[in-house]
Design a protein around this nucleic acid. Structure first.
Lengths: 206, 206
DNA sequence: CCCGACTGAATGAATCCTCACTCAGTCAGC
DNA sequence: GCTGACTGAGTGAGGATTCATTCAGTCGGG
């Protein structure tokens, strides 16, 4: 009812329903886990009929993929842009760490899907790891670290790939622990604590 | 019925079948993921009929729990014993890291279950995280670190809990990455590389 | 303006397949 | 022959997906 401007009602910005379904699915997956979530639950949460879900997504699995793809694409894009402005590799890594935890800390449901639900199958892990988003992220950390090695800021004898994994793992664990914890603390400040130790560990002697 | 005599006869003395089922389940879960694994698959892999599985386990879920419990119990037990012999907190942490990766590196299927399948549901994560094994493990790292802080070996201003999570996260990521990687490299040596960086990061200035 | 034909997004009951789990039997050992 | 470990076909529930139907909205012609 109401003030429908027909210009926008023909194509409700396409996203309307699709977005609603994605958001609902994130919530439902986060609460019940992917395998225990019924498509009907998602539909109800989105205020939509069961069948409507299938007008926007081929299958339940595609919904999960879409959640991941959308969030990851945006994060990497935003990340790259922020980093352009920074020169010092140390500062870049600090920024990466903060962005990492900021993103996850900003949307608990999305964080749960990322930290828990997406890990629940080797198949998916392999897909998404191979598919590249994850590799791309690790590569970004690694490249930044190598930059710092070339500049003599970081110890040259360290294996950059291992270092990147290590940093990622540390941040990842902060996020996972934060999700599982009952106590509500701030996630973001931990980025700086982690980076303090990390940078101290990898920096070349002066 | 439960007469005194039958201490060990409730279950066959040497529990061949039970072990076989657990081993088979580990393999099947690792290959297909928990939710995509059929009990029938497990039975077949164990060389046993479907029904037999239910003579030893109450449900499919109980199988997963049993895999986790058995492996974790043994690991913690063995770990504690090894550590008793060591004094230097640094050395203790190094040993923990090595043990961590040795265990996972020794049985790829078990590692997959640990790194991937057990993470696949918040419910389980919370259970097992709360249930304590995981908390106990983190606590062990933390206590060792605090010991080092008291001894003046490690920087006193660091938050021991965060440090423990960080180390765990780093090791965890080494393991996960190793599992997902196609390339077959040795997992254990990474423990020392990680510890080099880590210890360098947390040690007090001399 | 209003009408009737038309469109296609949305619906949700019905379908249909997939398993986890059960239980009536079989069989081996004593 | 009895016991109890073992079997595996069968069952029933659950839940992803489908599709016949509805109906709000659009549009051209009068």
């Amino acid at each position: 009812m109401g003030t429908a401007r027909s210009l926008s009602t023909v194509r409700p910005v396409v996203n309307d329903k699709r977005e609603a379904i994605l958001r609902a699915a994130t919530q439902v997956f986060a609460r019940n886990g992917y395998f225990n979530s019924k498509v009907a639950d998602i539909a109800r949460a989105a205020g939509v009929a069961d069948g409507t879900v299938y007008l926007y997504f081929k299958s339940k699995e595609e919904i999960l993929h879409s959640i991941f793809d959308a969030a990851m694409e945006e994060a990497i894009h935003a990340g790259r842009k922020e980093l352009e402005a920074i020169d010092d590799p140390r500062e870049k890594l600090r920024r990466i760490a903060r962005l990492h935890l900021e993103r996850l800390g900003a949307d608990r449901d999305l964080a749960v899907v990322f930290q828990v639900e997406l890990r629940g199958s080797t198949k998916f892990m392999e897909e998404f790891s191979a598919a590249g988003f994850f590799a791309e992220y690790l590569g970004m950390i690694r490249a930044t670290f190598e930059e710092g090695q070339r500049a003599g800021i970081f110890r040259r004898e360290l294996n950059a790939k291992l270092v990147a994994k290590m940093l990622f793992g540390a941040l990842d664990e902060m996020a996972t622990n934060w999700i599982l914890s009952r106590r509500r603390y701030k996630l973001v400040p931990m980025a700086d604590e982690v980076m303090d130790i990390f940078l101290n560990g990898v920096s070349a002697a002066i």
